[in-house]
């Protein structure tokens, strides 16, 4: 057996994993790095539950060859909160009932974060576009869209941070 070492930063911390040839990033994160927040949903690029940010941009970890993230920066929902403070997106999801079963939430949140990091004042259509690759079977999307709009408003307001966990 041969394993390939891959090192990257995960939520700001240096991380290294050994992967099998052909392993995808989702497996590397979950079984290698122990970050269980990204989920398997389809393995084919349809559902978006495995979405993570690579250098700030959303990617599907189940379709990303693990070795290709060598030296890059990966963010997941596990690293979303700032210290003991929830990220405004997380708080808005809680307040707005934007998660039911919770399975899509981790992917949905990082997709939303990628949007707000580059566009602090998105229109509703831009929010819809940003999460268009992330399926949700429970909510019907409206509460999620509302929550992202609410979080954007919070983040624009001075001192608008989430609550302590």
């Amino acid at each position: 057996m041969s394993k390939t070492p891959v090192s990257f930063t995960l939520n700001g911390r240096d991380t290294g994993v050994f992967v099998d040839g052909g392993a995808n990033l989702l497996d590397a994160l979950r079984r290698g790095a122990g970050d269980l927040s990204p989920k398997y949903g389809c393995g084919q690029g349809t559902c978006g539950t495995c979405t993570v940010l690579i250098d700030g941009e959303p990617h599907l970890s189940c379709l990303t060859l693990a070795e290709t993230v060598e030296g890059r920066s990966i963010s997941t929902t596990s690293g979303l909160q700032q210290g003991a403070q929830l990220h405004p997106l997380q708080q808005a999801f809680i307040d707005g009932f934007a998660a039911q079963c919770g399975y899509c939430s981790a992917g949905m949140l990082v997709a939303a974060k990628a949007l707000l990091d580059t566009n602090p004042s998105p229109s509703r259509d831009e929010v819809i576009e940003a999460i268009s690759g992330n399926l949700c079977r429970c909510t019907g999307y409206e509460p999620i869209i509302d929550a992202i709009m609410e979080a954007a408003a919070q983040m624009r307001s001075p001192g608008g941070l989430g609550r302590a966990v």
Binding site: G22, N24, Q44, G45, C62, L63, T68
Partner: peptide
């Protein structure tokens, strides 16, 4: 040959690969 990964990795995830080497 692996490009963006959306086709090759999908095949691998479903065990539908007919290759043993990935070239990039």
């Amino acid at each position: 040959y692996l490009g963006g990964g959306t086709l090759v990795m999908r095949a691998l995830n479903y065990g539908e690969q007919n290759f043993s080497r990935i070239v990039r």
